[in-house]
Design a protein around this nucleic acid. Sequence first.
DNA 1: ATTCCTGGCTAACGGCATTAGCTTTTAGCT
DNA 2: AGCTAAAAGCTAATGCCGTTAGCCAGGAAT
Lengths: 189, 189
Amino acid sequence: MPRAGLDPAAVTLAAAALADEVGLHNVTMGALAERLGVRAPSLYKHIDSQADLNRRIALLVAEELGDELRTALQGRAGRDALAAAARTMRDYIIKHPGRYAATVRLGVTGPDDPLALAGARVLESLAAVLSGYNIDPADTVHALRLLRSLFHGFATIEAQGGFEMDTNVDESFNWLIDFVDRGLSLKSQ
Amino acid sequence: MPRAGLDPAAVTLAAAALADEVGLHNVTMGALAERLGVRAPSLYKHIDSQADLNRRIALLVAEELGDELRTALQGRAGRDALAAAARTMRDYIIKHPGRYAATVRLGVTGPDDPLALAGARVLESLAAVLSGYNIDPADTVHALRLLRSLFHGFATIEAQGGFEMDTNVDESFNWLIDFVDRGLSLKSQ
DNA sequence: ATTCCTGGCTAACGGCATTAGCTTTTAGCT
DNA sequence: AGCTAAAAGCTAATGCCGTTAGCCAGGAAT
C-alpha cells in the first residue's frame, strides 16, 4: 500500500475544511482521519493533540485573514478602506465559520508565539485602516478595539443565525460602516 | 438515604455556577452530578440531555440579563441609559463567562420558543436605550444590531483575554460608549 | 543490499454521554 | 395508619472519542 503523504499543514487544512462543513465541534479525530484516508491514531504522527490541531487551525485563520486584509486594503484609505476591511472580515467568517470558531478560547503562550504574531499582523491591517482617519494617537488603541469588537461581534452573531428579524442584514452592515466612518471622521477634527 | 430534592431549575443553576468556575466545556455530567451529591445518570430524571442543559442555561442567562437590564435602565435615558446597559452587560459576562458561553451556538426552534421570548426581552431593553435618541424608526433595527454586536464582541473578547495590550480596558470601554453616544446623537438630528 | 527513520497500522485504556432496568423513597388517597 | 404508584435515585452496560503503546512496512541513504 502506498502512503498517504500527509504532513501537519495538510492535516490542518483538511480539518479546517471539515470544520467549515460540519462545525468545529464535529471535527472528531475519526472523521478527520476518514476524510484523509487514514486511521485516527495515524494523525498523531503529524499533530500533538486535538488542542494542538485547534491551535494550528487558528494560526491558519490568522494568516489567511491577514493576507486577505492586506490584499483588500491595497490602495484604499478612509471610508473606502474601512468598508473593505469590514467586508473582508465578514465574508471570511461567513464563508469559514468552522475554522473561525477555532480562534475562540485559546491562550497565547508568549510574545514570540506564532499565533500572537499572526494575530498582530491582522491588527496591523486594522490599524492601517485607522491611519486614514487622523485619530489622536492616544485613542488609536481604543478605536482598534472598537473595530475588532464590532466586526467580531457582528459576524459571529450573523454566522450563528442570531439576527432573527427579517430586516436585511446587508443593509444593517452598510449602516454600521457608515456609522463608524462618521464617528471616526468626527474624532479627527 | 434521603433524596437530593433536585428539579430542573436546581440542576440548571448548579450547572451554570459550575460553568462559571471551570468553564462550560468542563461541565461534565459526572462533575455536575458530584457537585449535586448524586450519580450522573440520575440527572437525566430532570434534563433530557446535555444539549437540553445548555439550552436551559442559555434561557437562564437571557432571563437574568433581561432582569438586570430592566433594573439598571429604570429612570435613565440617553447617554446615561446607554452607559448603564453597556456596563450591565459587560459586568454580567465578565462575572459569568461560563454560563454566557452557553448562549453561543444554539438554534431557536420557533417563535414561541421560551428562549426566543427571553432573548426578545433583552432586545427590548436595548431598544429602550435607543428610544432616548430620537432615531429614525427605519434605522432602529440597525442601531439595535450595532449595540448587540458591539457589546457581545467586546465582552467576549475581553472574557477570553483577547485584549493583549497593556492599555486599560476600562478606558477603552468608556471611550467606546462615548463614541456610540456621539454617533447616535448625530443621527437624531 | 542493508539499515534505519518515518508514517502507517491494530489493540487497548480511560473518560464521556446516554440508556436500560431495578429499587427505594415519598406524596396522595382511603 | 396503611396502600399504591409515580418520581427519583442507583448499578450495569453500550458506544464513541481522544490518546498511548507497540508493531510493521516502505522508501531513502549509505
